[in-house]
Amino acid sequence: MSQEQPSVFLERRAYRQRRMADAARMLPVFGVVLFYLPLLWAISGGQGRATTYVMSFLFLAWLVLLIAAALISSRLPSGAETDDAFKDE
């Protein structure tokens, strides 16, 4: 029984990596939503919001996105590893 432990672990790792790849795929979609959000404010706001307000929001969104990208990328396999984890992709 204990012999099977490593294989379970490996599968789990590959599973995690695939979910991370899913997250990496979702990230730009999330980014588009964040970056286009101010457009909706403009419509509802009548005269338009202050530049400083929108600017702060955009830079904050930018920061959140790149931190998320850094976290996800560091958990993704690279180079040759990729092929093992995503063979049947």
């Binding site: 790849a21 990496a24 795929r25 990230l27 730009p28 980014g31 588009v32 970056f35 530049t51 929108v54 600017m55 955009l58 930018w62 996105l65 790149l66 998320a68 990208a69 990328s73 993704l76």
Partner: peptide, 21 residues
């Protein structure tokens, strides 16, 4: 034209964080 210049950098940002695609 105010914040419009940001679009030039937001586009590449989206491409880079979407590198997996």
């Amino acid at each position: 034209s105010g914040l419009e210049f940001l679009t030039i950098y937001l586009g590449p940002t989206l491409i880079m964080i979407g590198w997996w695609w």
